[in-house]
């Protein structure tokens, strides 16, 4: 296990850091709210609105995980479990959707 972990006082970004992350999160929320009124689906491509909103959500999640949840200073095992859980979620999404997206191709298509 890594030894950089758990040195008292090292495992966080300090007072201004917390407020910086907080400011980013608040900005992200407000930005998500207003960006949802732009018609990106029409101007760019269908799903662009959702993609943008999810990208912001991912960014916010990363901030919370790295700094509020101290993953940045944590041993590799913690990094691994955080990444692995998202990876497994991706497996579940991708393989389930691979069924739905390809179901009407080929012989069954109208």
């Amino acid at each position: 296990m890594s030894d950089k972990h758990m040195e008292t006082g090292e495992g966080h970004i300090g007072y201004p850091g917390y407020f910086g992350v907080f400011a980013i999160l608040v900005f992200g929320t407000i930005f998500t709210y207003f960006s949802s009124f732009w018609d990106l689906d029409g101007t760019l491509f269908p799903g662009a609105n959702t993609l943008l909103a999810l990208a912001i959500a991912f960014f916010k999640m990363t901030c919370v995980m790295l700094f509020f949840m101290h993953v940045y200073w944590s041993p590799r095992m913690i990094w691994l479990s955080a990444v692995a859980s998202l990876f497994w979620l991706a497996i579940m999404f991708a393989y389930t959707m691979s069924d739905y997206f390809t179901r009407s191709l080929g012989v069954f298509s109208v």
Partner: peptide, 16 residues
Amino acid sequence: IVWIFLFPLLYLLGRH
């Protein structure tokens, strides 16, 4: 974090 995802996915669809 769960709410961070729930908010755009549930509240902000198709407002445009």
